[in-house]
Every structure is written in C-alpha cells, then in structure tokens.
C-alpha cells in the first residue's frame, strides 16, 4: 500500500481545430496510489474525458499532448512509441467508456471476445484463457447461459458487465472508467457500482479513475476527488473533505446544485453563466466570470495551487490570500 501507480505532471492536451486551439487540459497534476479510487468531476468543457484519453494514449485527431509527463509505475508512457503503448494498453491500463457497450463486436460471442483479449495480451494456452474468461464473466455477475451470447442478445446492464470483464481480465494496474454508468438505469447503475466496488477489493492492487459529470454517483465510491473546470484543476481532496469542507467557489456552487431528497425543504441553486468558450478562455481564473466571490485579481491572472493542509489542494486567489469565504447560505 502506498505505492504510486500513476503520476501525472503538468499535463497539457490541446485540440488544434480550424477555429483556434482548444486547451482541453491545461496543466493537470495528480498522483494515484495502488488500490485507490480517484474521481474526476467536471461539466461540459472541463476536459475530464481528455485526461482519460491522454493517459491511455487514444487521443483522437486533432488532439495532441503538448506538455507534461505521465508515469505509470515509474515509466514515462509519453515517451513510448505506438507499439510499446499498445503493449501496455489492456495489460497495465484499460478503459471503460459510456458507449463501450456499443463497441462490442456484434459478430462475436462475448466469451470469445474476452478470450481474444487475453490471448492478445498474454502468452498463455487457450485452455487457461477459457478458464479465466469463465471466471471473470462469473465475477462480473453474468450467468453461464449468457457466456455464449452475442452482444445484441444482452441487455444494457449485461453488456456493460461484459465490457468491465474485458477491461479487467488482464488485471491492469489502472482502470479508467469514463462515465461507466451514465447510460444505465438507476437500479442497474447501483448494480454496476457494487460490481466495481467488489472488484476493486478483489483485485487488491488495481486503481481506478472515475470520470463523471455526476458528483453524486462518484461520491460514495471514490476515496479522492479532483474538481475540474475549463481544463484546469480547481480543487483536490479526499471525498469527505470535498463534501464537508469545500473551499473552491466552484465546488461550493456544484454542491448546491444537487437536490437533497432527504431534506424537507429542498434548496437548489444554479451557478450563474454558461460553460467557458474553450477556444477563447477568459484571462485570469477560468471560473472568474461565474464566480460570486471574484475580485479584480481573479480576472487578471490565474491562481496558483495552494495546499491548505493534509493534501487538500485548491486553486483560488482568495484561498491563496488566506481569505475566508463566507458561505452566503
């Protein structure tokens, strides 16, 4: 425990489109330990998915990683060529996305697809591969009757389980889950989250990055959370600190926009304004146009990261200047 699996330093990924440069990820740094679950929360234009794609090296044109380092177990994967990166994919890092269930090969039975994944990545005999396939399909909660089915014969939840099986079968060190439950119904969502939770325990040392726009789904499963906005990190802390002691104005605003069903009188607040124009980002702090606490300096220069103690990081001028933000509740 305590070994660092992923170390990202100052990652910058930009998309070069005809209209300009979209600074999708603009200087993100964080570390993940073995067995940890990290949540990356962000709304439209936050860059959260781009972080995931950058790590797994499947950034689509016209995206490019322009700066930064990504270390997987002390190996800088940005320095690898495409062959070497392909070796790592599936074995050390794997990914589950929202639309993964649509990327199952419709012409292959699912046990065959899983087996293929194993055989491509590892040098083992077919019979061992079959055993492992059956094992993992059982672990993800599929019944033996489903093993030999084609994707279109399975429901959404079952397909997602199959995808998870594919992502985990080679026991990767790092799993990137980008909105893995968004397309599913609430009850199936709960089932899949339980599955992921169980698997995390079972897989001892696998770490998982949960990327989502929905804080409520992530909160109960992640240990730590990064809040992203406009390509930059706003706050990083343990889940419990983010919920009980949010410091960044965006985090506070975000928490207020989730309706709490248990309270008798539900209060719901919006954050004024719209998501940032990613080609024409505001000068200064990216969040400043929408921030109710913003001061002059916020519009002039971006804030630096401050550690307020116990590895609770905030990127905000007011925190930087050690000003206390009074809650307007």
């Amino acid at each position: 425990m305590g070994k660092i699996i992923l170390d990202i330093k100052n990652l910058k990924t930009y998309y070069f489109i005809p209209g300009g440069i979209v600074k999708a990820v603009d200087g993100i740094s964080f570390k993940i330990k073995e067995g940890e679950a990290l949540g990356i929360i962000g709304e439209s234009g936050s860059g959260k998915s781009t972080v995931g794609w950058s790590i797994i090296g499947l950034l689509s044109h016209p995206g490019k990683i322009v700066e930064g380092e990504i270390f997987i177990e002390d190996q800088n994967i940005l320095k690898l060529d495409s062959e070497e990166m392909r070796e790592i994919r599936g074995k050390k890092i794997s990914m589950i996305t929202q639309s993964s269930m649509n990327s199952l090969n419709p012409l292959m039975k699912i046990d065959y697809q899983i087996m293929e994944t194993i055989l491509v990545n590892e040098n083992i005999s077919k019979s061992v591969a079959i055993k492992r396939t059956e094992n993992i399909l059982e672990n993800v909660g599929l019944e033996p009757s489903s093993f030999k089915k084609y994707p279109h014969e399975l429901s959404g939840g079952m397909k997602q389980r199959a995808i998870i099986a594919m992502a985990l079968v080679c026991r990767p060190k790092l799993i990137i889950a980008d909105e893995p439950t968004t397309a599913l119904d609430v009850i199936v969502k709960a089932q899949i989250l339980k599955l992921l939770d169980d698997l995390m325990d079972g897989l001892e040392s696998s770490s998982i990055i949960f990327i989502s726009h929905d804080l409520s789904t992530i909160v109960e499963i992640c240990d730590n959370i990064i809040i992203m906005y406009g390509g930059k990190m706003m706050e990083f802390a343990t889940t419990s600190k983010i919920i009980k002691n949010p410091l960044h104005p965006y985090t506070k605003g975000l928490l207020k926009s989730y309706p709490h069903i248990e309270k008798e009188e539900i209060s719901l607040e919006s954050i004024p304004g719209s998501p940032p124009n990613m080609v024409n980002l505001p000068k200064g702090c990216v969040f400043s146009p929408r921030c109710i606490y913003s001061k002059n300096i916020c519009f002039k220069e971006p804030a630096k990261m401050t550690d307020v103690g116990d590895n609770h990081l905030v990127v905000c001028h007011l925190i930087q200047e050690r000003e206390v933000l009074y809650d307007k509740r």
Partner: peptide, 15 residues
C-alpha cells in the same frame, strides 16, 4: 438507488 452526497455510505451495496 438514489445516491446522496454522503461519502463512504456506499448506497449501492444495499440496492
């Protein structure tokens, strides 16, 4: 099956 902003509660275990 409704998640609350309650860290560590693990609502999904009960569902």
């Amino acid at each position: 099956a409704l998640p609350l902003l309650d860290p560590g509660r693990k609502y999904y275990l009960n569902v």
